[in-house]
């Protein structure tokens, strides 16, 4: 039986930028012990960054072929 405490309601620390998002993701993976997800998330973030730069237009088909 898991007794819910104040930790069940939690506060994330990052402020919203990509760097702070990465810090928060790292803390999350550490807490969840799911380090295997790290490379996937990093690749996805790089691709996501390209997507944002491309605004979903020219680079989009290129990105899809990378998968």
């Amino acid at each position: 039986m898991a007794v819910l405490t104040s930790q069940s309601v939690s506060q994330h620390n990052f402020e919203g930028g990509v760097v702070s998002l990465l810090i928060e993701l790292w803390q999350f993976l550490k807490y969840r012990k799911k380090f295997w997800m790290l490379p996937i998330i990093l690749v996805l973030l790089v691709l996501g960054g390209l997507l944002i730069l491309a605004q979903g237009s020219v680079v989009a088909p290129f990105i899809y072929t990378l998968f």
Binding site: F14, G48, G49
Partner: peptide
């Protein structure tokens, strides 16, 4: 996934 990478991961922001 692009929706997540672009927007949903940044829900706190």
């Amino acid at each position: 996934i692009p929706v997540w990478i672009k927007d949903k991961l940044f829900q706190k922001r």
